[in-house]
Every structure is written in structure tokens, then in C-alpha cells.
Design a protein around this nucleic acid. Structure first.
Lengths: 247, 247
DNA sequence: GCAAAAGTGTTGGAGCTACACCCATGC
DNA sequence: GCATGGGTGTAGCTCCAACACTTTTGC
């Protein structure tokens, strides 16, 4: 049987996984507080050529009969031990020379994970968490991919509810605001932030407050909808009409 | 040699091609003027199973050593005879059951073509132009793909300069406005449109005017930049801050 | 009471919509 | 001149940034 056209490239799936740094690194080292937290992405060390010993995005080959999104969820769980709260296709990279020797087309996804997910992360010297704004030289074209994913995350934060995927089921407005401030790397006015978020209708009060704080107890909120509604991420509904990347 | 993982799916490339209906169909039939023009996309009739005799997006298999974007440009030229003025990746569709019998992953692009490009289009009964808002049942999942491309076109029109790709190198503001009105399917205020576009800095006056009109001769403009600058479409710069899909 | 974060009120400006109005050409 | 699209002016509205201010808790 002759080789079919369209079959000479191998199909891989990779994922850029974003989490919020818990304030303590996985090594248990305290982190000094310039900003209280920062964005954090896990990378895996390549154990084989090509790109041996370099850090790379978690990923793997597409399985037979496996949906693309399922492959992304599977490979990121296998390699890093985290489960995504949000998963969306980013872009497909297929330059002929992006991997030496063989042709690889990578369908890249990006994911957000909650803090408790990262505690179940694999404790492995070949998995390490990095600041996506300060990366070493990665394998293949992965630096460019992370840069693109970061731009998409920052843009999408402004017109969707994806910030919820960084948080627990209930949270305070200050916690939600901290997500925005961390990702956008700029402070936001608490008063205006409150009004904008409340007007968007994306949150509902739980009726509870968080006690034990040294100050006035803040109300707890939860997302207005299950947050994962909307099939495969193609047609998601924009909500909040501001909070752009630029001031 | 055993079959490698990641190779059991065939990689195809398809393109959703948008043009402005010239006011006359390719058959030479005059078109009545409710709206003066409308969006227009070319589809090809499938001559083989699966989906035989249904209309489908132009496309083909990815060639060995061929870049994804190059494959999109090649296959749309081969099947429909048009050359794109703008080409950007849309999404990769890979549901296991989207094509019967064999696994096909399709990297889908979308393109804009100028009116003169469509005059060089192939005159073939197996290529026909359709209104994307009024399509028959297409092969595979192509109805959904067109719907998604249409949403992306309408959204992107509001924050980029892609409208220029529908027009010649120089054009009047009325012609540019007609592009927006056609794509967004709503009338725009000429006065406000002018100010918005001028403020965006996306256009420069050529100093010429268009003569031969029955009224005051309008100024001619050209895009401020070569319009195709920006590599592979990943990092394009948003410009015009309004003209949304919704009023 | 005091400090600090939660939460509310208010003002001013930017930008957009709607629409009135003037300009320049062909006939 | 007059019809018509090209092009300018402007009032009013909405929305948001900035910031002053009040509320509620722990200590």
C-alpha cells in the first residue's frame, strides 16, 4: 500500500498550562513579596533528542480515535499531574523545519488550573514551574508558543469569565481582583472593579462571608453559570466590556 | 516498521474564502439590489465519497515539507482559481467521527479576496459561489466551520484593518464603509464612520480624487501600511476601537 | 479607639451616536 | 439651480477613571 498524502506529518498535541503561583515554590522555598503572586507554568525536561535536556511544553502524540481536546487533557495529566479547569485550543503550529528530522504538526491548547490542582502535581525533577515572562531557551518553537498563549490569556481576560478558572468555587472580589492584577501586571481600582464585575452579571452572591480576616469580612461569590458550559470553546460569550490589556 | 503514534490521522487543509459579491453572479445574471452587495464564498462539489455531490470547502492534503499556510494558499488556488489578499488560520477541527471511515484532522484557514481576484475564478460547474448566511447542507462539519469563520470575520472587522483586503489599492471612504455595512449587515453613519477611520490612523490620503461620479468627487485613500506586514498572522495589531458586531 | 480592608458616592472627561448643516460636482 | 453624495459641526449620552468617603471587623 502506497503512502497516502496528508499522512507524512506526525500529529502532536501540546498545552500551555497557566496557574497562579501559590506564593511558595514547589520546593518549599518562600517567595519574597514584591507582587504577592505571579503567573506560573509547568514545563517538562526532554529526556530524548531532539532538544534533549531542554525544557518543553507538556504534550504527546494524538491517540487513535481520540479527540484533540481529550488528547490535550490526557497528555498534560500524564506529564504534569494537573487537571485543567479550562481548556481551549490556541493555534496549530506546523512549520516544516520546527522539529529536525521529522515533520511534526502540533495542535496547541492552553489551560487554566486551580491552586489545589497544582498541589497534586507530580513531584519530579523533570517537571518544573516557571515564570512565563522569564523563561530560558525552550525546545523547538516553544518560546514563541508561550508568548502567544500569554497574549491570548491577557486579552481574553478582558472580555470573558476565564479568571474564575484560577479560583475555587467561591471567592471574594478581592481574590478575583488579584487574579486580574497578577495576569495583567497592573493594579486595579477596587471600587471600579467591583462595579464592573457586578454589572456584568457574571457573579452571584452566596450569602456567606469569609470570616477570620483581620478586617471587615468580605462577601463570597460564585460564578453565575457552571463556567464550563459552551461545548468545545468555539462559541463562548464575551461579557465584561473593559479591563483591557492596556490601560 | 511499526506504525508510529500520531500518524494515524490524515492532515488536511481547508479554507473559507470570503469575497464581496460583484453585484452580478458568475453566470452573468443581474442581481436585484435590496442591499447592493453581499458576502460571497466559493464552494466545490465533492466528486467522490464520502459526501459525494455535496458542496464543501476548497482544500486538500498537506504536502510533504509544505507549510500549513502555503498548503491553504495552494489548495484554494487549485480548486477555485482565486488568490488571497489575506490569509489567517482559523481553527483545527479533529473530532474522531467528522469523516466516516478514516480519521481526518483539518487545519482550517480563512481568506479574503479582492474583487478582481474573483474574475479570474475558475468557470466550472463544480465551483459555485454562495451566500454564507444561506447555505445548503454541506459535507462533513463544514456548515459549522463557515459559521465560525463568519463570526470571526465580523468580530475582527471591528478591531483590525482587514476590510482593506476586500478593496483595491486605493479606495474612497464610501467604498470602505460599504465593506463594513455589507459584512456587518447594518448601515453605518457616514459622518461617524469617517471620523473613526481617520482617527485610527489606518489610512492616508493619496491626494487624488475619484472623478466621473455624478456628485462631489470623493478623496482616494490607501492603507497606511503594506497591510500584509506581520509574519504569519499571529501578532497583528488591533486598531479601530469600535464597530462591533452588535450595535 | 484605631488600622485596614470592604464597600458606596460623585465628579469629570473621553468617546460614541444621532442628526443638523455646509460643500462641490454633474446634469 | 438642484439633486446628491462628500464632508464638518455639535449636543447629548454612556461609560469609565479617579478619588473622597462611609462601614465593619480584629485587635
Amino acid at each position: 500500500m502506497s503512502r497516502l498524502p496528508g499522512s507524512d506529518a506526525r500529529l502532536a498535541v501540546s498545552t500551555v498550562i497557566f496557574a497562579l503561583e501559590p506564593g511558595v515554590t514547589p520546593d518549599g522555598v518562600e517567595h519574597e513579596a514584591s507582587g504577592p503572586r505571579s503567573l506560573w507554568i509547568p514545563l517538562v525536561r526532554r529526556l530524548r533528542e531532539p532538544g534533549k535536556d531542554r525544557w518543553a511544553l507538556p504534550g504527546g502524540w494524538l491517540g487513535a480515535g481520540e479527540a484533540l481536546e481529550a488528547a490535550a487533557a490526557r497528555t498534560l495529566e500524564e506529564t504534569t499531574g494537573v487537571t485543567p479547569a479550562y481548556l481551549e485550543q490556541l493555534y496549530t503550529f506546523g512549520a516544516p523545519d520546527r522539529s529536525p528530522a521529522e515533520r511534526v504538526v502540533s495542535v496547541v491548547y492552553w489551560a487554566l488550573v486551580r491552586p489545589e490542582e497544582t498541589t497534586g502535581a507530580i513531584d519530579d525533577p523533570n517537571v518544573r514551574w516557571f515564570d512565563p515572562d522569564d523563561l530560558p531557551a525552550l525546545a523547538f518553537d516553544h518560546n514563541m508558543i508561550v508568548e502567544y498563549a500569554l497574549a491570548r490569556l491577557r486579552t481574553k481576560l478582558g472580555y470573558s469569565q476565564i479568571a474564575h478558572a484560577f479560583l475555587d468555587q467561591t471567592f471574594t472580589l478581592a481574590e478575583l481582583r488579584e487574579v486580574y492584577e497578577t495576569v495583567l501586571r497592573r493594579p486595579l481600582d477596587p471600587a471600579n472593579f467591583r462595579r464592573t464585575v457586578e454589572a456584568s452579571g457574571a457573579l452571584v452572591e452566596t450569602g456567606e462571608v469569609r470570616t477570620g480576616t483581620p478586617h471587615r469580612p468580605p462577601k463570597l461569590y460564585r460564578p453565575a453559570e457552571p463556567a464550563d458550559a459552551g461545548a468545545n470553546g468555539l462559541f463562548r460569550v464575551p461579557i465584561a466590556p473593559h479591563l483591557r490589556k492596556q490601560s
